[in-house]
Design a protein around this nucleic acid. Structure first.
Lengths: 136, 136
DNA sequence: GTCATTGCAAATACTTTGCAAATCA
DNA sequence: TGATTTGCAAAGTATTTGCAATGAC
């Protein structure tokens, strides 16, 4: 019996994104993209990697997260001034944050709508609209 | 001729908030609350203070910003995972962020509306909804 | 085998804490 | 004067960088 996780081809994913499939990156990609809609910090991902027997420096986790983000495989989510979250869901959507646990949940943009965007300064355009619903 | 800035009574403001009006705090309060809707980082405020001849450690600026926030005179705004912004407008409103300059502008909540808030987990309630319009 | 790229130690950036010194009652 | 609070040096986190070593082609 082979689970779908094991069938996931991290190597092909990285190669398709022009990222060299090194041992460390393959490990991180498997952890990240083997299942849907993950929200991780570098530290949590580093811990997961260690728990799987993947040894690497925390800085390598950061470097890999940035590579993946540059390639469009991840998107950074700003919900905390002290921690950087990365989201494997790169399509447009919003977030719900449980303040007590730091847990982040995706919110479908089809359900949540923002109306009444103000006039922008001349020569500028909207790059992204982020909505964070903080709950306690 | 006396400008309205000079008439602003920082000492009364701090005393009304049960914050001891020390020299450093008075200086920072004057810089912050002498005009409307300021968005500052600790570093920028520290630099402004130095430029005015107010010498103090950066940590003192942080401590003061936190005191003011605890007292409800400031509100923290999360738009960047690396920097902490403080806003002198403590009423409910949203933000527009110029990505190129880091400049933050208030958006009236009467103009901008969020519809379709999803179901929340049992036993939780909304603590705040933040909308950040990022422009480039 | 080559050389662009990596992976990590060390450095940096940002923020908080612990406590000597100052301040108010 | 004594309790309280401050202001800052030093420490603590989080993240980035420079470059020796690697490993993909």
């Amino acid at each position: 019996m082979i689970s779908s996780d094991e069938l996931f081809d991290a190597k092909a994913l990285l190669q398709d994104s022009d990222i060299r499939p090194t041992r460390q990156r393959l490990g991180l990609a498997s952890l990240l993209f083997g299942r849907k809609n993950r929200h991780v910090t570098a530290e949590v991902l580093h811990q997961e990697a260690n728990d799987c027997g993947l040894r690497m420096a925390l800085a390598t986790v950061y470097n890999s997260l940035h590579s993946f983000t540059r390639a469009g495989l991840l998107r950074e989510v700003v919900v905390d001034a002290g921690r950087r979250y990365f989201d494997t869901n790169v399509s447009h959507h919003h977030h719900l944050l449980r303040e007590q646990t730091g847990e982040l949940v995706d919110v479908d943009p089809g359900k949540l709508e923002v109306r009444g965007i103000p006039d922008l300064p001349r020569g500028t355009s909207v790059s992204q609209i982020d909505v964070v619903i903080r709950i306690k």
